[in-house]
């Protein structure tokens, strides 16, 4: 039985309905992956080239030229461990953020839980995360067996908790993406601001620097409030045993992720119910 009435509770998450539509979720994931594969020559290889080049650029500019500390870790390992996580968060954020706009024709003609589209982004980006991880592991193993620096590094047992990092990152990406989807529907201006915001956000994430080199307490607070920081630092800890992470950082990160996700969900729910009338 379906009851149609104006929504009152925007925090509602109808999980039962989402499960009901799991087939659609999987087909949307398949669609995203096939379409990318069909339109390009190199296909999924792009998802290797992009982080590789970013890492090389970071190594040259921030590592060699600017000489920013990498906590004693090899540059490639340090940067890539962050980029892998950042890419996943950003990928989820982008698909979720564009979910309403790119699927507007479908959304205006047929009902399905709107959250399915952002969720499909969470799943399809897992594939790219997997590719990125493979490449990271290759470099990681190379440097692991050829340790020359003074600082030794080794994986920790906590590496088994890696899936938690993935879930956490997905939640961050989804939360921010839902915000973007909702806000760009109402105010088109944000579409132009988005690349700029993403760039600033990346520099506020400890990808090219460890948090312990940041002395200013205000900056440090901003970094910990940024929900991606926790994921990046935690991931780095899992693989190397080196981190600037402390319990305060973990709590702040978790709380800010939860807030981002819940408010994002509520805002998205509020906008999506009349989305068709606005576009």
């Amino acid at each position: 039985m379906v009851i149609i009435q104006p929504t009152k509770n925007f925090f509602k998450l109808n999980i039962k309905e989402l499960i009901e539509y799991r087939d659609l979720l999987m087909l949307l994931v398949k669609r995203d992956l096939t379409v990318i594969y069909k339109q390009t020559i190199l296909g999924p290889i792009w998802f290797l080239i992009q982080p590789l080049i970013t890492t090389i650029v970071f190594t040259i500019i921030f590592g060699r030229v600017a000489n920013i500390s990498t906590d004693g870790l090899p540059h490639m390992v340090f940067y890539m461990s962050g980029i892998v996580i950042w890419n996943y968060a950003q990928g989820v954020m982008n698909t979720a953020g564009n979910s309403l706009a790119t699927n507007s024709t479908m959304l205006s003609k047929v009902y399905f839980p709107r959250l399915i589209i952002p969720l499909s982004g969470v799943v399809s980006n897992l594939v790219y995360l997997g590719l990125n991880l493979l490449m990271f592991l290759a470099f990681y193993l190379y440097y692991y067996f050829n340790q020359t620096g003074a600082t030794q590094f080794a994986p920790t047992w906590a590496l088994l908790a890696f899936p938690i990092v993935v879930v956490y990152t997905a939640l961050v990406g989804l939360g921010v993406g839902l915000w973007i989807a909702a806000i760009t529907t109402k105010y088109r201006d944000f579409r132009f601001m988005l690349p700029f915001i993403v760039q600033v956000w990346m520099y506020a994430t400890p990808i090219i620097y460890p948090v312990n080199v940041v002395a200013n307490p205000l900056y440090r607070a901003i970094i910990w409030i940024n929900p991606v920081s926790l994921a990046v630092e935690f991931n780095r800890y899992l693989f190397t045993g080196h981190t600037s992470l402390n319990s305060v950082g973990v709590i702040i990160g978790c709380v800010s992720t939860l807030i981002t996700f819940l408010t994002g969900l509520a805002f998205f729910n509020k906008v999506q119910r009349n989305f068709v009338d606005i576009i």
Binding site: M1, I3, I4, K109, Y111
Partner: peptide
């Protein structure tokens, strides 16, 4: 359920299929 009503409610007693435009 493509858009919400401003007020009032509707109860649909069963699975709903819709065809508002083919091939969307």
């Amino acid at each position: 359920r493509i858009t919400e009503p401003t007020t009032g409610r509707a109860i649909l007693n069963g699975r709903v299929g819709s065809l508002l435009e083919v091939g969307t």
